[in-house]
Amino acid sequence: MLIEATDAHFAALIAGESPDGLAVAEGGVEAPEVLAMLRGLSAQVGESFHPNAWMIVEDGEVVGLTSLVRTPYVGDTVMIGYGVAASRRQRGIARRAVADLLAWARGDHRVKTVTAETSIHNGPSQRVLEANGFERTGERTDEEDGELFCWSVGV
């Protein structure tokens, strides 16, 4: 299940606290510096597009995050990112979260296309996107992330 992530949720996760009384996956969802970066990204995207970030919750526990990773472009295209706590990977959580995010996108008149990028070495993430109907549309090199596959699906 996806629950919209607010600034207060990010603050709680960064502080190692439970947002809204939810448990947090063993080992936390992500490193504090990554959570701080995602918090800033959500604030930036939130200036023009809302909602834009969600906690991935299973059985009352925050097990990951998913979000728009940039302000929508080409008018109706959003790019998503997602991550699952290391202690909760390989359980289908990311696949279900991306399916839930696509359901949201299908219900939002502003969104016609959802894109994503994965490392060319991240087979599990590639399988998550393929399982949700994404098709590989190209490759690019990013200064920080290296070689990436580009993905897209119409909603």
Rank of each mutant, 00 (worst) to 15 (best):
M1C: 12
L2Q: 05
I3G: 08
I3S: 14
I3T: 15
E4C: 14
E4N: 13
E4F: 02
D7K: 12
A8K: 09
A12Y: 02
L13H: 03
A15D: 07
A15G: 06
D20Y: 08
L22T: 07
L22M: 11
A23I: 10
A23K: 15
V24S: 09
G27R: 13
G28T: 02
V29I: 15
E30F: 06
E33M: 13
E33L: 14
E33D: 15
V34S: 10
V34Q: 14
V34G: 08
L35Q: 01
L35C: 03
L35H: 04
A36G: 10
R39I: 11
S42D: 03
S42V: 08
V45H: 04
V45I: 09
G46R: 00
E47K: 14
S48Y: 06
S48C: 10
F49V: 06
N52M: 04
W54E: 01
I56S: 06
G60L: 10
G60E: 03
V62W: 05
S67K: 11
V69D: 07
V69R: 04
R70L: 02
R70V: 09
T71V: 15
P72C: 01
Y73T: 05
Y73H: 13
Y73D: 12
V74K: 13
V74H: 14
G75A: 10
G83P: 05
V84S: 06
V84L: 02
A85L: 05
A86C: 09
R88A: 12
R88Y: 09
Q90F: 11
R91H: 14
G92H: 04
G92V: 02
A94K: 00
R96K: 09
A97C: 13
V98G: 02
A99Q: 15
A99K: 00
D100N: 11
L102Q: 07
W104Q: 11
G107Q: 08
D108Q: 10
H109P: 13
H109Q: 15
V111R: 11
K112E: 05
K112S: 12
T113I: 15
A116Q: 00
E117R: 08
H121P: 01
G123F: 07
S125Y: 00
S125I: 03
Q126L: 04
L129K: 10
L129D: 01
E130M: 06
A131M: 03
G133H: 05
F134C: 00
E135N: 12
E135Q: 14
T137G: 10
T137W: 04
E139N: 11
T141R: 12
T141Q: 08
E143T: 11
E144Q: 13
D145S: 11
L148P: 10
F149V: 05
C150A: 12
C150Y: 05
W151A: 03
V153D: 08
V155W: 04
V155M: 05
